[in-house]
Design a protein around this nucleic acid. Sequence first.
DNA 1: GGTGATCCATAACAGCGTTCCGATACGCTG
DNA 2: CAGCGTATCGGAACGCTGTTATGGATCACC
Lengths: 205, 205
Amino acid sequence: MARPRTHDEALRLKLLDRAGELIAADGPKALSLRKLAADAGTSTTAVYSLFGGKPDLVNALYTEGFRRFGARMAGTVLTGDAIGDLVALGSAYRASALADPNLYGIMFTRSVPGFEPNEDAEKLARKTLEPLERIIRRAIADGVFVDVPPETVAVGCWGIVHGLVSLELTGNLPEGFDVTGSYEAALRANASGWLRPQANGNDPS
Amino acid sequence: MARPRTHDEALRLKLLDRAGELIAADGPKALSLRKLAADAGTSTTAVYSLFGGKPDLVNALYTEGFRRFGARMAGTVLTGDAIGDLVALGSAYRASALADPNLYGIMFTRSVPGFEPNEDAEKLARKTLEPLERIIRRAIADGVFVDVPPETVAVGCWGIVHGLVSLELTGNLPEGFDVTGSYEAALRANASGWLRPQANGNDPS
DNA sequence: GGTGATCCATAACAGCGTTCCGATACGCTG
DNA sequence: CAGCGTATCGGAACGCTGTTATGGATCACC
């Protein structure tokens, strides 16, 4: 009964796309609703009718980030060797972070101040870590890893991966540092630390 | 030849103090120059004459954070046992982060958008990690750790510590998770992964 | 006491997220 | 076909931000 809506799904995708570009070009600070609306040839109202506000727009970016991230994690080829698989997953994690560093910031380092993901988004985020837990649970069941709660190992692996990647992204690593090589060596050493002593054949070099 | 200055060292310290309180109470987003000036009974001009602007004020907080952090690190009692010492340093790191979580955010997770520490501040930051490198260098020299570049081990240790702490601070850890226990176990396992195979007697439980 | 240099609080400016409102543009009715 | 009703959206307004410009206040010196 009224004028035809132009704030439709197509505009929603366009806005998400431009928002990603803005954030990739100049960081999360540069994501302004006014600039975004101007870039997309609409008004700030569009963001409110399509998303609800800036936090909800960021939440959509958060979800999109975890979608891509989850795809990379799920697409990692696993061999059944716990150590090698953990290193492979960690490399996929890093590759995902380097591919979309600003999305990574939104997802893991709260780079947009005041933003908190909603419950659905957080559930999706947790699901992407399932491959990690599967590997660890199996390694413990098979007696390859020591018998500790799987969450402990999972959080440890997640911690070192997340830590190294965020140090790399924030430029906190020393100059001339062999990131890729050291990254894999560190992941291998970390995973090896959970091996059962008698099964231990670690060689972190 | 003019009116006596009230924008002096005392006010500088008062502003730093209030800024810390504001940021601790409601996060980095809530640090506004107007609120800060009002709280301190002065005007926004004070921040500009004493610091130079908001980024420089944040830089001062960054430096203060690393001062406290460095003191905790340097004050950690070391025994000469590489694994135990690395765990102890990691616990000091976590204690420092939990004591001043918002300073930690400024220091390590770029929680104030657009802020980059200046060169002096970054040099100070690097110095606080010296105890870590000393332990590792010695463990490698003594043949306790495998013979890899010390930076590789140091970055790995820093990575897991930083990763676990920021996951904890951002609330990304599962509920009901035994943080303290798992934290130390994960650090121990991680450090054990660098032991030379023949010297290996790891027990991360 | 007047003068002049200095300092600082106030006000102005540009930008932000958000809210509100009026012009718009269509389907339906007479 | 004309006019109405209403859903819709662009633009203006509000209160906030960091930053900059300005003018009044204040003291040392002559």
